[in-house]
Simulated assay, not measured.
Amino acid sequence: MRISGRVAGSVALAAAVGLGGSLVPPASAEAAAAEAAAQSLPSLVAYVRGGDVYVSKGATEQRLTTGGGHARPRWSPNGQQLAFLKKGQLWAMKADGTGQRQLATRTAAGPSWSPDGKWIAFASMSCTGGPGVYRIAATTAGAKPEVLFPSSCREEDLPEEAATDSPATGSLNDRLRTDDAVAWSPDGTRVAFRGGDCESTYDACLSIGTVATGEEKTVASYGGGGSQNSGFAVVPSWRSDGAKLSWTAYQEGETPAETKPVHLVEYDTVSGTKRTVGGALDRELSYVDAGRAVITSQNKGGSWLAVLGLATGTRTLLRSGSQPSVQPLPR
């Protein structure tokens, strides 16, 4: 059953997912490996630590926000701006942290830019009372959000709702399962998001929606519809060529062998095949290229960014933090 609180809560939840606390300086060997990995990255990585947004590439980092309550930074296609959440609402800023501006007053969840940079998609309560996907003009002051999904809400008035910045609590699973981060496809035709029409059949699901038609395709589902499991699929991320889509998942099966702790799934958008990448508790993948991604992993009891080799499973720790977003290279 859909309830509006899921969206309102998910924004604050995103800010708390995987936070590693204060920066823990790595041991010398870890520092050397992190430096080598960072130097091999083609661009900056934006991430969250302690509720604030940082960017880094190499031995140094730059703090872009202060005061906490920030989450889900996402680069614009030209790499010159970041969309992010501030106390549950949608904001944007320049890559150096200046020019911070609020884009919408609605409660929002993890944003994603359209590939032409004109729009930002985000999740918020829909006319059905459950989570929906909106878009808003990225550069127009006072722009009004437009409904993308569910398509049945496109002709309805925007529902009124109050923002919330309540802190998230509970286990990692609890914090992740209602994270409503969305991901706009590189060709601009589709948006991946948690939930959708599939929630009328399943207990939890992930959808790919076609912007032009409003049609939805279910790519992951848990419970109901004959599925003898429970779990979730959240925080989708597209590879730059659109051939792969990844997400963070959890599955509790009928037997221990069918149960998987939080992990990463990579989906082939042509064949529909899926595979697990990385290891247990890896999450929040952001592609670097076809062979590498920056993820949130576990280290020393906290959350750390790591560069993951998608074919080999090798990883190199970068920094304490979570919710990575890799800056696109200039086209």
Rank of each mutant, 00 (worst) to 15 (best):
G5A: 10
R6Y: 10
R6G: 08
A8L: 15
S10Q: 10
V11G: 15
A12Q: 13
A15C: 13
V17I: 15
V17C: 13
L19S: 13
G20M: 03
G20W: 01
G20Q: 04
S22R: 11
L23Y: 13
L23F: 15
A27V: 10
A34G: 15
A34N: 02
A37G: 04
P42V: 08
S43E: 12
R49Y: 10
G50F: 13
G51C: 10
V55E: 05
V55K: 03
V55M: 05
V55C: 07
Q62R: 15
R63S: 11
P73R: 00
S76P: 04
S76Q: 09
P77F: 08
G79Q: 06
L85C: 04
G88L: 01
M93C: 08
D96M: 14
G99P: 02
T105S: 08
T105Q: 09
T107R: 04
A109E: 11
P111N: 03
P111C: 05
W113K: 00
D116C: 15
I120L: 14
M125A: 07
M125V: 13
S126H: 03
T128P: 05
R135V: 10
I136Y: 07
A137S: 13
A137I: 03
T139F: 03
E155Y: 02
A163W: 00
S171D: 13
D179L: 09
V182S: 02
W184F: 07
G188Y: 06
V191Q: 02
F193Y: 13
R194I: 03
C198I: 11
D203V: 10
C205I: 01
C205K: 04
S207I: 05
E215W: 08
E215C: 00
T218V: 14
Y222E: 09
Y222P: 00
Y222W: 13
G223W: 06
G223L: 06
G225R: 06
G226R: 03
V234W: 01
R239C: 01
S240R: 14
G242D: 06
G242C: 10
A243N: 13
K244L: 14
T248K: 05
P256Y: 09
A257V: 07
E258F: 02
T259S: 15
K260H: 14
V262K: 02
V265H: 04
E266P: 00
Y267H: 15
V270W: 00
G272Y: 13
G272P: 11
T273Y: 09
T273K: 14
R275D: 01
L285K: 10
R292E: 02
I295N: 07
Q298P: 06
G309A: 09
A311Q: 15
T314V: 06
T316G: 06
L318Y: 04
S320A: 10
P324S: 11
